[in-house]
Design a protein around this nucleic acid. Structure first.
Lengths: 144, 144
DNA sequence: ATATTAGATTAGACGTATTCTAAACTCCGG
DNA sequence: CCGGAGTTTAGAATACGTCTAATCTAATAT
């Protein structure tokens, strides 16, 4: 996804392509490691020190609402974000909290009698366990 | 799950059966509506005003570690808890944040080449959309 | 029964992640 | 150029959860 495509996807979602919003989206497209809001803010702010924390949060919220970005809540830790590129599932490490991508495969939907009158938007499959780093030995509290 | 069974499951997990811990576990067994820690504390404290907030959090952490209770992280909201009774999946409402149970069915595991050296502990299937309450009309911010 | 002690509890301070506020700015159409 | 919707900003405020250090208690050993 190049600069033009990012700009286009923002406009398609009815969002103005401001410098700050573009920076957040571009960072997510380039960094698939599921950064936290704080990490995104730090990176964006390093390049353009005018940008603020609140704006980073605002833009992440807007991008998630627009469906361009996915938010992953992790128990007891800051949320992680990633640009919705290739479809994939998520693996969350019990120990260090890092989120990693796993190959995508189809998920069976629930039976409609089970769903009732609920309106289903998406099925999310999350795997939990130890990432390869933490599995090796009880190593880092926060992997690189 | 009756009083005796609760006491037993705590002891089996190497946890002392204190009044406060028992109360937390018993509340979760009786209230399958995925309460937040704050709701659990309020309920437990109403019955026995000696119990404290810190203890409720401590006990929830212990119960989750022991595998007796499941914690569900919800983006931007307080975590929800439920006693692991009958296996089930979870439906999270985009709008009010409530968590509901859906009938359980088998989830296909990822291919081992995709998993790599990670150690898989569990597969969690989460559905997202609107609960029947919120689907009806853009009604409550927080359902009963 | 009683003593022992690891484990549990407490109130309230603290910390971190996130949202709110209100003023200022920017972009664009009229 | 004017107006207004959408954005940005710094910092205050809030929500949620954790920590501390003193005190207490359940389960075991005596």
């Amino acid at each position: 996804m190049d600069a033009r495509a990012i700009r286009q996807s923002l406009e398609d979602s009815g969002l103005r392509c401001t410098a700050q919003r573009y920076a957040v989206m571009a960072f997510l497209v380039e960094h698939a490691g599921h950064p936290t809001a704080a990490e995104i803010f730090a990176a964006v702010n390093r390049v353009d020190p005018r940008s603020s924390r609140a704006t980073t949060y605002n833009n992440l919220r807007d991008l998630v609402r627009a469906g361009l970005v996915r938010e992953v809540a992790v128990e007891g830790r800051a949320a992680r974000f990633d640009a919705r590129g290739i479809r994939h599932h998520h693996f969350v490490c019990d120990r260090c909290g890092n989120v990693e991508d796993l190959e995508w495969y189809d998920v069976p939907r629930p039976a409609s009698h089970s769903l009732g009158k609920r309106v289903l938007r998406e099925c999310e499959l999350i795997f939990r366990g130890l990432c390869s780093n933490c599995a090796r030995r009880r190593a880092p509290r926060k992997a690189s």
